[in-house]
Design a protein around this nucleic acid. Structure first.
Lengths: 209, 209, 209, 209
DNA sequence: CATGAATGAGTGTTCATTCAT
DNA sequence: GATGAATGAACACTCATTCAT
């Protein structure tokens, strides 16, 4: 089997459950059934391995966003945003362990993380902002604070994957099942709606509970 | 200054920014201006220090929930739930660094974390479930999947504190300011509404955009 | 026995015979009968140990020079220079292993060595230059290229200690014996004479072989 | 370019500035733009490469001595010795980096170095001794301790090349320039003179300053 | 001849903890 | 209570060498 890929797989699995600093290169090598020296050989050290994995994750993550942002503008902003959210969910689902690890790691104060923020997370913000502004201009969305919307969307999108263990062991929700993705997507759409929908102008008196 | 407290403060600060495994006891001792041996002396080692901090955090966290759950049942479930959420926000605000660290740490697979889940997080779930069920029974809330509601509430409650660096450096939101808490609370109330509000029965024809 | 001093002694001995890069910290610790970690503990790592030893050597070396330079100027420049050379010989004799190691190490291109040059070796040059110029001004010495004199003096002073093994194993000279120092000092005085003595003005015809 | 020669050139350069143990085969291979395995292939490992270079150096070194020793005995011992010294200087000048490295390496206690001593350095001693004894027998030289003369000659001959960096960076003498060789040769001749010249028998009273 | 993957021993350093003072 | 020396295991990494291709 491919040495390089073995290392990647072992690293993702271990980083996922024990964290980056909590995992030793020897553990990775042992799990990958590979000589320790190969980690430095292929990835330029443990730090390089981290960098590779984080970049790898965000490349795919941003790609999922970018793809939908660039859809024919025939589609409405809402449609494109919704598809974007769905694709992010699927991407995370397909890379569950990596996602959990990266989302956790990104809460630390390290040089690497600062770099990640100024590249990938700024890009993510850019696309979200662009599509939200477009939708607002077109009258599809209600005017609202874009950063706050981004904050809430990210919370909803990332939490199930970051907290997967909590979900399964406390809430008895299985985020690994594809079924979860589809159901959760609907809930996100609802939240999106309440965040962005234009208020109905209703004659108050006619409202009935 | 108190040796024990110095250690606690230094540990919270360092764990917050570098993570538990990423911080050494010597760093903590240096920052606390205290002899290394004191950490073992007072907390029975690094692991004991972690355990203490996590417990400390959740004790206060659960207390904030419990207090509001036990309010005179004169108050509606909605009122009590809302106050609960507000108190959780304030509690996290008052313990920002600790909150970030604990919320991050709780995403790992360790024995300690499993224990935390079966005690504190189960308790949290219990109270949320109880008050939600009460509200549903009383007709205050729409019937919905309680675990999913808990998941979403927790996401919204914890994210700003877990992601505080992202908020300030990418979104330019300052979660440290008290102003943020109040504003964010309103947003959570909105989300809560859309999650739990009973649908308006409206005569369709009269709806006006 | 003192841990710190054990490390120093073991390091000098091993660096002397195997060189700095050729010696491992584990060897030093083994020889000093001390835990490996103590090397970092006391000297801030192998590099720090090297730095300490080199500085230590040159501090004493420069002190031997300085002492004689600052002698009452009642003494002639020649007398003070001669005493200086003798003291350098004695100093090296007393620190034979360290001297060999340092003189060897100083032929490498490292950052530490560059620093040593700009501090200690510049100082050495300064004192030699000062006393030589003084002697020339006073008419005690013949005018000659000071750098070349320094070069030759240093060669003569350091070589026996740098090449001690060659001396004993090839030339069968024992540089460790105090006897050697005294005899070698006379030879150096001769060389010094031929380097610095003012030419005798002799009536050629009276010279007799 | 020739692979073998590339390795040799890279090794000399690196050993010169970083020492043998301070240089890794990968560095050599990188600098030589050659695959690492070639070093083992051509020189039977790093140790073999060292052995080759040291031997190579001393072969040429001894050859320069031997050549002049074997000159027609028509020439005086002094003439032949002088030419010998000049040729050694030129040889070292032509192989500056190698010379510095070998002269440094020869101060270590290793098996290889012991072998070098019992072969090359013994040979060097033999020729020096032979020509000095010849000169003494013939009355060209004053009687004196031959080992001490060898010691001093070697000091003067090797020092500028061993200490080349000190010369250029502290004394501002450029030992690389051919001009230096010629000038330094004259100084060595002077030293040689004072070492070997028969004392002038002078009637003391007639000496004039 | 040339390559690059692979190896396992070795590198210097840091770790959390203990213990006599 | 407080200290700093001491420990041995673990850390990430580099080493020279080998070998199949």
């Amino acid at each position: 089997m491919n040495t390089r890929q073995s290392i990647i797989d072992a690293a993702i699995s271990l980083f996922n459950s024990k964290g980056f600093t909590g995992t030793s290169v020897r553990e990775i090598a042992r799990k990958a059934k590979v000589n320790v020296a190969h980690i430095s050989y292929y990835f330029n050290g443990k730090g390089g391995l981290l960098e590779y994995l984080v970049s790898e994750f965000y490349e795919g993550y941003i790609a999922a966003i970018e793809k939908n942002y660039s859809l024919l503008t025939a589609h409405s902003a809402r449609e494109r945003l919704q598809q974007m959210l769905l694709d992010i969910l699927y991407y995370q689902h397909d890379n569950r362990q990596l996602a959990r690890f990266v989302h956790r790691e990104v809460t630390l104060d390290t040089i690497l993380i600062r770099e990640v923020m100024t590249t990938y997370l700024m890009k993510e913000k850019y696309y979200f902002t662009a599509i939200l502004e477009e939708g607002m201009k077109r009258g599809e969305f209600r005017n609202a604070s874009i950063p706050h919307i981004i904050l809430q969307l990210r919370s909803l999108l990332h939490m199930p994957y970051l907290q997967s263990q909590y979900l399964s062991e406390v809430l008895y929700i299985q985020p690994h099942e594809l079924f979860f993705v589809r159901q959760y997507y609907k809930e996100i759409l609802n939240s999106l709606n309440s965040l962005l929908a234009k208020p109905l102008k209703v004659r108050k008196t006619i409202l009935v509970r």
